[in-house]
Design a protein around this nucleic acid. Structure first.
Ligand SMILES: [Zn+2]
Ligand SMILES: [Zn+2]
Ligand SMILES: [Zn+2]
Ligand SMILES: [Zn+2]
Lengths: 153, 153
DNA sequence: GATGGTAATGCAACTGAGTTGCATTACCGC
DNA sequence: GCGGTAATGCAACTCAGTTGCATTACCATC
């Protein structure tokens, strides 16, 4: 008997069939802190069909196993929800690095409150900060040389 | 001689050639409070080529005559900057109505401050609130009555 | 362990936003 | 009016995301 993986367990809990591909998609997301785009996932799971990955994402999202964030480039990226209970789409802000393109959750931070004029009925909020991430900022400071990115996404 | 329109004046100030099409694009944006998508502009300016509108938008944006906001649907929308001096891209939050799709600037409001962990170098911020706009909320409350929304999308 | 129904997968073709190249046309200074 | 530059139109393209349909894997049930 194959030991049931943590991913399989999580999928079952969520009421999804724990297929090999869903497990691997989930594991790929668990393996990184950054949000992954569909393209990122395709390159990490080369033997999966791109449409399958799209559908897989959609299912995982429906079951709240991940949340979606759009960078300022308009591309959606996805992050696994670690805590099984809450972690709804928008309870923390996100950071988009203009240098390396990484999009990360700022999970330690709360979304700031915003007082809207009367008449608006709020359903959700998104706060996206863009700039240079610690990694890239350090690279610049240290490097002097501007040999930025070679890892073309 | 044709009286120089306000739009033409504004374009000249910004250092752009005040062509007929740019004037009309700017006027279309001035004529509404809501942010307009490229598609919206195409339907308001049926005799303009869609590519021309894209390029027009790009120029107006480069000259800070308008700013871009993305709805949670991922589609870019554009709003004219009334005040000629400042009005950079992101100094106010935006509201996206899930019912009618309208995206509006909350110009009266400041972006809330957010204290980031050390190491992050902030270049810009975006705050997008989604929900039901006053117009749609009222329509529902009053509802019972027949003449809901007919303006689809 | 075989069997069947449902859900998941692969493939191809499609949509819609946005871009690029190139030939044509309008604008502005002279 | 004339010429050069910038703006326009058109066609073709990229890239994210979706849809339809035939095939395959999963799970339960016998
Ligand atoms: Zn970075
Ligand atoms: Zn997040
Ligand atoms: Zn509305
Ligand atoms: Zn705005």
């Amino acid at each position: 008997m194959d030991a049931p993986t943590a991913a399989a367990k999580r999928l079952k809990e969520a009421g999804l069939r724990p297929t090999r591909f869903r497990e691997r998609t989930l594991e790929a997301l668990w393996a990184t802190d950054a949000a992954l785009s569909h393209k990122d996932l395709v390159s990490r799971l080369p033997d999966l069909d791109r449409v399958t990955i799209f559908r897989c994402i959609k299912q995982l999202r429906k079951s709240s196993l991940l949340h979606k964030v759009r960078g300022t480039d308009g591309v959606s990226r996805f992050v696994a929800n670690r805590t099984s209970g809450s972690s709804c789409p928008g309870n923390h802000p996100h950071f988009f690095c203009l240098s390396c393109g990484a999009l990360t959750c700022l999970e330690g931070l709360r979304l700031p409150h915003l007082e809207l004029p009367t008449g608006f009925e709020v359903r959700g909020k998104q706060f996206l900060v863009e700039g240079i991430c610690p990694g890239c900022a350090q690279g610049r400071a240290t490097a002097a040389g501007p040999d930025e990115k070679e890892t073309s996404s």
